[in-house]
Structure formats: structure tokens, C-alpha cells
């Protein structure tokens, strides 16, 4: 018994630095943000308690609801594109086992690029007047696009850039899943004479579901907090058509100095992200095999 107590003491002591780090770097800022969300910050930094005033204001704020809509529109569009294309890319990489290392490296290079660099690069490419994208379109006899300056196309364009950057990441996760699938199942399918399409839909995809849900969890957290690319390229424009909740909260807090309301927006976003992660984790448990 004494040995066990001693062991527990040692374990507690050894985990203490991690615990202190977690409390200091995660719990404290989050609790502080929650506290701030119940305060009214004036433009000059004066703080007064406002109860649930910031949350009440949020309910009647059109920009908040616009932010929710844009956040989820971008989230579902990007996630769907990345899962479909990422799975396809993983299948290609899985089959092309003799693919040279340099080609594999090129496949995964976009997500190694800092989002700010990717944003600047795409900003130049998609410039409606001077960019390469419209030059290519018009050279092919197709109409030029306003891309990020179009209220209709701005979100699909952002989803396209994010998909270009993060599809290889999803592909790597799915590739890991593919490599861990039991060969015996495929051997049995081959003996039974199953077609390749049937093998994919009835064996590969169901067995890959836990891996796909893991990829969904990882991308969901990033996509719901989508920030840097939008900030670099559109800052929420044109005319709020790419103003996600995160961008709206950031501008409210750091450009307009309304920290109390911005905190309420960010607490709400955190709850949304947490809810999505919990839901997806339950889904993952349901599809485990």
C-alpha cells in the first residue's frame, strides 16, 4: 500500500508541470474570456459589468447571424471537398506504391506552407486585373471571374484555396487508414468475385469510416475557426460576404476595441467548436470496428 501511495505521489509530481502549463495556457485564458464576455468594454478600455447584455445583443445582431451562416457554409463546403478529394488522392497514392519520394513530397507540400504565404500567393493569382487565373480563363476564351471580389463566389473560392492546401493532409490520414485495413477481407472479396466498385463501397469505405471521422474532427476544429486565409485575402469582404464568426469577433475586439462583445462572440464560437467535436467523437465511437 505504501509503495502504491509513493508511486501515486511520484506520478502526481511528474505530471504537475503539464498540469500547470494546461491551467496557465488554456484554462486561465478561457475562463478570463468567459468573464470578459459578461463585461462591457468601452472604446477607451473602461470596464463595467453587463450581465448577459453581450449575449442579448448577439441575438439581435444581424452580423452575428451572418457570421454563423458564413462559418457553416464555408465549413460544410470545404469539409466535403477535402474528404472526397483527400480520399481519392489517398487511393491513388495507395495504389501507386512505387511512386518516387519526390512526387509524394510534392503531393503533401501545400499544407506545409504557412496559411499567410498561401493567402498572399492566391491573392496575386486571383487578382481580377493582374492575376494569372483570369489570364488563363480569358486565354481559353472563358469569361473572367471576380473570384474573391464576388459576393457569390468569395466563399467557394476560399473553400477552393483551403481545399488545395489541406486535401493532402486528409489524404495522408486516409492513406494511413488504408494501409491498416486487414488484407484478409480483400482476399475473401476477391475469392467471391466482387467488383472493384463493390469492394470500395461495401468494404473499403465502411472500414475507413473511423479514419474519415478522425480526419473530420481534425479539419472541423480548423474550419470552424477559419481565420488567417480570410484575413489575408478579403478581411471578411466583399461587404461582409466572407465575414465568418471568427473574423467578426476578431475585428470587433482588436480593431474596434469592444472586447466584451468580442469575448461573447468567441465564447459562442468555442461552444460551437466543442459541440462539433463532441458530436463527431460520438460518431467515431459509433463507426468503430
Amino acid at each position: 500500500m505504501r509503495v502504491n501511495d509513493e508511486h501515486r505521489g511520484q506520478m502526481a509530481a511528474m505530471s504537475m508541470p503539464a498540469l500547470i502549463f494546461t491551467v496557465g495556457m488554456i484554462a486561465f485564458p478561457f475562463i478570463y474570456t468567459i468573464w470578459m464576455s459578461f463585461q462591457l468594454y468601452s472604446s477607451t478600455g473602461q470596464i463595467t459589468g453587463s450581465g448577459i447584455g453581450n449575449y442579448q445583443r448577439m441575438v439581435g445582431d444581424d452580423e452575428f447571424w451572418n457570421g454563423i451562416w458564413i462559418t457553416f457554409y464555408l465549413y460544410f463546403l470545404s469539409l466535403a471537398l477535402q474528404l472526397v478529394l483527400g480520399t481519392g488522392l489517398a487511393m491513388l497514392l495507395f495504389r501507386a506504391k512505387r511512386l518516387p519520394g519526390i512526387v509524394r513530397s510534392l503531393f503533401i507540400s501545400p499544407f506545409m506552407m504557412p496559411p499567410v504565404v498561401a493567402g498572399m500567393m492566391w491573392l496575386v493569382i486571383l487578382d481580377p486585373s493582374l492575376g494569372a487565373a483570369n489570364w488563363i480563363l480569358t486565354s481559353l476564351g472563358l469569361p473572367a471571374s471576380a473570384w474573391l471580389a464576388s459576393p457569390v463566389w468569395v466563399v467557394p473560392t476560399l473553400a477552393m484555396i483551403d481545399t488545395w492546401q489541406w486535401t493532402p493532409y486528409v489524404a495522408l490520414i486516409v492513406l494511413g487508414g488504408l494501409q491498416s485495413l486487414p488484407p484478409s477481407v480483400y482476399e475473401a472479396a476477391e475469392i467471391d468475385g466482387a467488383s472493384r466498385r463493390a469492394v470500395f463501397w461495401r468494404i473499403t469505405l465502411p472500414l475507413l469510416l473511423p479514419t474519415l471521422v478522425t480526419a473530420m474532427v481534425l479539419r472541423s476544429v480548423d474550419l470552424l475557426r477559419f481565420f488567417d486565409l480570410i484575413y489575408i485575402t478579403t478581411q471578411g469582404g466583399p461587404s461582409n460576404h466572407s465575414m465568418t464568426l471568427n473574423i467578426y469577433g476578431f475585428r470587433t475586439g482588436f480593431e474596434f476595441f469592444r472586447l466584451g462583445y468580442a469575448s461573447a462572440l468567441m465564447v459562442t464560437l468555442s461552444v460551437i467548436v466543442l459541440g462539433a467535436v463532441i458530436a463527431l467523437n460520438r460518431l467515431r465511437a459509433a463507426v468503430e470496428w
Partner: peptide, 12 residues
């Protein structure tokens, strides 16, 4: 104005 002027700042 130029196409996409709604996103124009000093850089563009």
C-alpha cells in the same frame, strides 16, 4: 474602376 475594386487597398 478595375474588376474586383471592392477588395482594393493601397497594394492593389
Amino acid at each position: 474602376g478595375p474588376p474586383g475594386v471592392i477588395n482594393y487597398s493601397f497594394q492593389q
